[in-house]
Each structure stands twice: as structure tokens, then as C-alpha cells.
């Protein structure tokens, strides 16, 4: 019984509650970093690392952190891990550091991470929170990878820098530019709608009530809460 429960937590983030295509979270890095496969995977893994660490630490300290200052505490923990990851990438993967640019630091304000801290890690045990972090992080990475694949193959004719025959001679640069990002994102969400016959996307509209960071700020947003054993 317990085992299935853990499995469910992990798989939820991958498919049923995919942060990018279903929960519509972390739109900024999704759009900005999906113009090349390399930076998309880099961004996805960096965010995953931050997500796992912050989820673990926040759930570990959840009894110690007073309710009134939980948001600033979460922000400090997240920003701390972001800086940590930033330092390691700067030191060991300087090329990736260059291509991620300011978006690396902006993982701090990625809705996914603060959202999971508020909705999940602040209420669940360390083990479950880590699993949730892994699931959500990989879900985020895969979604980014999917978008980046579409954009890079059509827009630049390459995949992770490797030239693809035929595509390289027929690239449509629109797709690697900013408008192409918005377009592909819209089309992919529509595709998910088609596949799931409209059941997956809970939010027909994107509004404040649907954004976990808004929930964080207003203390509202109970609709999206993922409770244990749900």
C-alpha cells in the first residue's frame, strides 16, 4: 500500500500534474530556455536539483518554521540553493553557465519551486517531498526537452547541436526566436488538450488564482493543493 503511494507521488509530476503542460507553471524559463536542447536540459536539471534540495530542507524544517514567516524562509532556502547550483555550474560547466545567463538566478522565482514548497514540502515528510521534487523536476525537464526539440529541430535544423540532414537546409528561424516559443507552447498545450480530450488541463484560463505563487502571496489558492494520499 505504502509503496504504490510513493510511486504515485513520483509519477504524478511526470504526467498527470506535469508542471509545464498541465499546471502551467514556470512559464518564463520554459519559454526562454527552450530554444536549444542543451540549455533546456541544463535549465531543467538545475531546477530539478534546486527543487529536490529545497523540498528536502523545507520539509525537514517544516515544524521549526513559524507559519507567519514561512514564505520568506522558503524564499531564503530556495535562493540559497539556487546560488549553490549557480556556483557549481559556473565552476564546472562554464559554457552552460553562459547560455543560461540571468535565468539561472531567476530559478529563485520559478513558480514551480515555491509552489511545491508551499503546497507539498511544507506539509509532507522528507521522503515524500524528495520524491515529489524528483517527479516534478523530471516532469519539468522532459517538458522543456519536448519543447526544445520541436523548436531546435525546426528552427535551427539541429538537435543538441548535431545537424540533422534535410532539416538543416530547411530551417525556419521563427521557431528559435521569441514569438516561436510562444507559438510552440500554445500548440503543444492544445495538443495535450486533444490527447486527453480536455481533461488534463485543469485551468482553462490562466489567472492569479491558478498560480501557486499567487496562492503563496494571498494565502489562498486551495484548489491546487496536493494533499497526502490524494
Amino acid at each position: 500500500m505504502k509503496k504504490t503511494n510513493y510511486w504515485k507521488i513520483l509519477i504524478t509530476g511526470l504526467l498527470k500534474e506535469n508542471p509545464v503542460f498541465v499546471l502551467i507553471l514556470g512559464t518564463c524559463p520554459t519559454l526562454a530556455m527552450s530554444n536549444s536542447v542543451t540549455s533546456a536540459v541544463g535549465m531543467g536539471l538545475a531546477a530539478t536539483a534546486v527543487l529536490i534540495c529545497s523540498n528536502a530542507v523545507i520539509s525537514l524544517f517544516r515544524k521549526f518554521i513559524p507559519d507567519a514567516v514561512r514564505i520568506p524562509c522558503y524564499i531564503v532556502v530556495i535562493a540559497g540553493f539556487v546560488t549553490l547550483v549557480e556556483m557549481f555550474i559556473h565552476a564546472y560547466l562554464p559554457e552552460l553557465y553562459k547560455s543560461l545567463g540571468v535565468y539561472l538566478a531567476l530559478i529563485t522565482v520559478n513558480c514551480i519551486i515555491l509552489g511545491r514548497a508551499e503546497m507539498f514540502a511544507g506539509k509532507n515528510t522528507v521522503g515524500k517531498s524528495v520524491l515529489d521534487g524528483i517527479g516534478m523536476g523530471i516532469g519539468f525537464t522532459l517538458a522543456l526537452l519536448a519543447m526544445a526539440t520541436v523548436r531546435e529541430v525546426i528552427g535551427a535544423g539541429t538537435f543538441a547541436g548535431i545537424e540533422i540532414p534535410f532539416m538543416i537546409d530547411h530551417k525556419i528561424e521563427f521557431f528559435v526566436k521569441a514569438p516561436g516559443g510562444l507559438m510552440v507552447y500554445g500548440l503543444l498545450i492544445a495538443l495535450v488538450n486533444v490527447i486527453t480530450k480536455g481533461r488534463a488541463i485543469k485551468k482553462k484560463e490562466f489567472n492569479c488564482a491558478g498560480c501557486p505563487s499567487a496562492g503563496v502571496c494571498n494565502g489562498g489558492c486551495k484548489a491546487n493543493e496536493v494533499k497526502e494520499g490524494e
Binding site: F64, I65, A68, V76, A79, G80
Partner: peptide, 19 residues
């Protein structure tokens, strides 16, 4: 609340300084 926030800030700062 103040103590909790201060402790967390201090811990994070130490961790970052080490890294």
C-alpha cells in the same frame, strides 16, 4: 518568527560561504 528566519539566513549564508 524572527529567530527562525535569522537562523535560516545564517545557515544558508554559512553554506554558501563554504561552497
Amino acid at each position: 518568527s524572527v529567530i527562525a528566519l535569522t537562523v535560516i539566513c545564517a545557515l544558508v549564508a554559512v553554506l554558501l560561504a563554504l561552497t
